[in-house]
Write a protein that binds this DNA or RNA. Sequence first.
DNA 1: GTCTATAATGGGATAGAC
DNA 2: GTCTATCCCATTATAGAC
Lengths: 198, 198
Amino acid sequence: MARTQGSHALTTGPKLREAALRLFAQKGYAAVSMRQIAAEVGVQVGALYNYTEDKQSLLFDLLQSHMQDLMAAWQVAQAGLMTPSQRLEAFTRFHIRYHLTRTDAVFISYMELRNLTPENFAKIETLRRAYEAQLQSILTEGQASGDFDLHDSKITALAVIAMLNGVLTWFRSDGRLSLDRVEGIYWDMVRRAVGCAP
Amino acid sequence: MARTQGSHALTTGPKLREAALRLFAQKGYAAVSMRQIAAEVGVQVGALYNYTEDKQSLLFDLLQSHMQDLMAAWQVAQAGLMTPSQRLEAFTRFHIRYHLTRTDAVFISYMELRNLTPENFAKIETLRRAYEAQLQSILTEGQASGDFDLHDSKITALAVIAMLNGVLTWFRSDGRLSLDRVEGIYWDMVRRAVGCAP
DNA sequence: GTCTATAATGGGATAGAC
DNA sequence: GTCTATCCCATTATAGAC
């Protein structure tokens, strides 16, 4: 028979983060109350404050973890790839695949930036820029080697990421197109947009 | 000497809409109070309810007007254009230019959809899909005529719009690149992404 | 049309018992 | 570590005076 009181330190922390991530993505940070989160976790509101300093820290920690995990995963995914073309295809497919498995985190990473304190906002922005710089360096390299033909590596990097993020708004795994097919279509569009021969 | 009471019917309505648009874009619908809006307008909170049924209607009216204005402006912009290539270039430049002058409305049109009631959400979605369909029909037409070479007109339309929307996050009129130059760079990327010869 | 005052509800966060 | 109870403050929306 389930306890209704007592210690659940091993599960409450992760459950808090999961519930907050889901609710923030669904309803927005400002529209979600600590009471709602507590109800999802299955504790009373007071208990949450054993795991987070306040609501703001909760949002910040979720965004920071997401960006750090993203950077780490990309470092692994791109290891050993040599040519700009290989690396660009890898980035395209990685970005789509990785983000599609974490749509909630991606969503709040774009939508809830304005609900961060200025200090926290600056930290997340730094991480986000570092990720964008990864793509930009691929483009610059390909431009220098003559593999790519593009006007401006910074703008192109932002345009490519914006285009890839668009996938998240409509892709459904039970939809008309498989993930692999979608990756292929986007890779073809990216490839041509940067002037890279097939 | 300024009146602090009395009728301001001719200015309060528009000022309410302007203030709400700006504040919703800055802080998010849920994070903005009717008191804050009233302070911006320069009236007490009770007076706002002469101009809007409630906060939800305020958001819905802003989004609906934005989408209706957008569609009307595009109808004008594309009138008389014949070839798929001309129409696609017109769409690209129109979308960038039009949205850059209304960043607040664009922002809330994407961010605050989840704060609409289901009924209101459905209405805005219908308008948004109609706009996307404009681009899709250009792509389908260009595909049929052989002017374009692309895999899927629906996905391509969504990808192009997502890419163009990316401009809004970084463009500054006093920045490194002029609006005309930016339009040109994006048109080149769009053109190549859809397999359209120069 | 706008004001002031108020109703009714819910918010984040904390104290102290267990 | 969690609970209950509570503080204090903000919220949307309305009523009635001017």
